[in-house]
Design a binder for these strands. Structure first.
Lengths: 195, 195
DNA sequence: CCCATCGCCTTTACGTAGTAAGGTCCGATC
DNA sequence: GATCGGACCTTACTACGTAAAGGCGATGGG
């Protein structure tokens, strides 16, 4: 009379794994624990992810890191307002940072050589936004890496700082939301100096 | 008649560990392998690093991440040239990036909550440089995190991209040295917009 | 000279990890 | 109903981190 347990899926496995990482940290994500959470023996996972844990971790970072900065297609023939790219990148940056911090446990995986495509997609979308904003190709490529590097790096600094903080406020507290936004503005302002 | 093996030291252990990580990757750094490299049983390491692998990894990132951007003390009473801070930060950034890429294997550790002090020192030194360059405290704090975030994040992007590259040049190659420098210039130029 | 002590290292052993190899069960197809 | 293939389970192996306790040579006091 136990509920018949919906079948295993690649997506369901990765979602559950992400849930474990968010709740207990990357170090506690093991195949056996993941199996338990899915009400399945650990070895069952290998039928859906033949490359085992490697593939699982690849799936995690793809799930977290792929958030393209799609320029909203302008409605019927109206041109996108030329000055909007900064506002657009500001809001994209905020969303990307929020996602990275929501899943801070996978941040270390972003530094490993795993899954090179997940970030490539995001980089390409940033480059495209800058190109459409009028930057030359070389400047757009530089700008894309500069922005993405800043967002990821700053998120990593935040994750470290907030994780290591004792709750009784040992040093002066930092308004990380504001600091991230201010730094992003610095980067976006600096882009104007590119040719 | 075997050479009498110089005694174990905390520093020698960490140096050897770093050598293993650089040569074979973080995943192959194990206590037993480290013991072999030191010609010692694995458990001997615990006498010098009582907290075991945690302490070892902490030592690794302290060794890599602590490179303060010390402003060169001006020689006898000469004031530092006011405009030099950008050049100084450019060269510091290049050195920091080079070190991160030399030890790309420890980059994932920088993202974990380990050893909060190693980066704090570097951040403080950046803040100090900016303060001495005339920035207000708040702007210096923002600028320090912006610079450090960019440098770390960009180095991570580079490490990923170069590690995943097939040697036969699948996409157009990127001049990473130039791209990093250009992005750092973007950030430094953007700092001028801070109050 | 002997023996107690201490610092450094080794031995042994336990629990947990990832996963290879093969087995089991069940629904679909002919 | 026999066959078959996919989804899941069982067992077992190797490697890891490390707790616990043992050995062992140098040192210093009697």
């Amino acid at each position: 009379m136990t509920s018949p347990r919906e079948p295993l899926t690649r997506d369901r496995i990765i979602d559950t794994a992400l849930h474990i990482v968010d709740g207990q940290g990357l170090g506690r994500l093991t195949m056996r624990r993941l199996g338990d959470a899915l009400q399945v023996e650990a070895m069952a996972i290998y039928h859906h992810l033949p490359r085992g844990k490697e593939e699982l971790l690849d799936g995690l970072i793809a799930h977290v890191a792929a958030l393209p900065a799609a320029w909203p297609r302008p409605a019927n023939g109206t041109r996108p307002a030329a000055g909007d790219w900064r506002a657009h990148l500001r809001s994209w940056g905020g969303a990307y940072r929020a996602r990275l911090l929501d899943h801070a446990g996978v941040l270390p995986l972003l530094m490993t050589r795993r899954n090179p495509t997940a970030l490539a997609e995001t980089t390409a979308s940033l480059r495209e936004v800058l190109r459409m904003a009028g930057f030359l190709d070389a400047a757009a490529a530089t700008g894309a890496h500069t922005i993405l590097g800043y967002v990821i790096g700053h998120a990593a600094l935040e994750a470290r700082a907030t994780a290591a903080r004792r709750p009784d406020d040992p040093e002066e507290a930092v308004d990380w939301d504001h600091r991230f936004a201010a730094g992003l503005d610095v980067v976006l302002a600096g882009l104007l100096t590119l040719p």
